[in-house]
């Protein structure tokens, strides 16, 4: 009996001790789980040349100034390529939380481009568990450079058009590492020789490693399946850093591509990394909240 009493008193003592130590907030009934989205897998909407799995938020306009200088191996006379420059000016806009549209103009072949980027899966946990983010990007590029090749006659407007369709499947694995895979189809309305394919299939892979809170290392590679391009065209490889300073993201990188629109860097890259045909370049992204959505 005494033992029983002792046991009881122990139990009571233990339970009251627990009640004192635990937070009163633990007494509240369980709340419904909320969706917890993975955010900021990349610092901006491009890895280097190509699209990352991030979108501009609803109502945010992103002004992008992108530069690629000449080849490093041109040596000191051309100041390691800095005397030459290829430039793209672009505006991207977040139309809804899942849709971005953008336009741009590149000096490379005097190209105008426009794109639509749709996010249809958003990496999240909690209420629902979706391990990946998935997007679709379609863009059109219009080459406006005057045709100097007299053997192409007539040179029609349709000759100037190029289309790219891309699926982006990516995941932010942790605070530091994000990876994405981009199977891509580039359609070129016009190619010079019959050895070149109008439809080019490209497999892209890209990722980042965050080094500090505000600096990340990015890598991006586009593998063109064999026998689609004329000899002399190379796969695009770029390596660079993102530096974030509040409203701006500065991207500094080395790449063997000069074009900054999908069809240009995927199918018209001529630089060879092994020979030093590497361009220093930068992208500056500046965002403006032009529309404030109601939460």
């Amino acid at each position: 009996m005494a033992r029983f009493l002792f046991l009881c008193s122990l139990l009571v003592a233990f339970s009251s001790l627990r009640a004192q130590e635990g937070s009163m907030l633990d007494l509240l009934p369980e709340d419904e789980p909320t969706a917890e989205y993975a955010t900021a897998g990349f610092k901006t909407t491009r890895i280097i040349n190509g699209h990352s799995f991030e979108l501009n938020s609803h109502g945010v306009m992103d002004f992008k100034i992108s530069h690629r200088f000449g080849r490093l191996n041109t040596g000191p006379y051309d100041f390691f390529g800095l005397d030459a420059a290829s430039i793209r000016l672009g505006l991207d806009y977040g139309v809804t939380p899942w849709l971005n549209v953008g336009v741009g103009r590149s000096s490379f072949l005097k190209t105008y481009d426009g794109f639509v980027k749709v996010k249809f899966f958003k990496q999240q946990k909690g209420k629902r568990n979706i391990p990946i983010t998935a997007l679709w990007v379609s863009d059109m590029a219009i080459v406006s450079q005057k045709n100097t090749n007299t053997s192409i006659d007539p040179y029609l407007f349709s000759h100037r058009l190029n289309y790219t369709h891309q699926l982006i499947v990516g995941r932010k694995f942790n605070e530091a590492i994000s990876l994405q895979f981009m199977p891509t189809l580039v359609h070129r309305n016009f190619v010079i020789t019959s050895a070149e394919a109008n439809e080019v299939i490209v497999l892209g892979v890209g990722g980042r490693v965050k080094l500090t809170k505000r600096i990340a290392l990015n890598i991006e590679y586009y593998y063109v399946l064999p026998d689609q391009l004329a000899p002399g065209f190379k796969n695009s490889l770029s390596v660079g850093f993102d530096i974030e300073t509040g409203g701006h993201v500065f991207q500094l990188h080395f790449t063997n591509s000069t074009g900054m629109v999908e069809n240009a860097f995927m199918t018209q890259t001529t630089g060879d990394w092994l020979k030093g045909d590497v361009h220093f370049g930068f992208n500056v992204s500046r965002v403006f909240s032009v529309y404030r959505p109601k939460h």
Partner: peptide
């Protein structure tokens, strides 16, 4: 008179989306 409160940092909403991202991340 014991008093407790708690908030999830990620539930704070800002006027600008980028502020919210930087608030959480940086």
């Amino acid at each position: 008179g014991k008093f407790e409160f708690a908030v999830l940092i990620k539930s704070f909403e800002f006027e600008k989306a980028l502020m919210e991202e930087h608030f959480n991340e940086n």
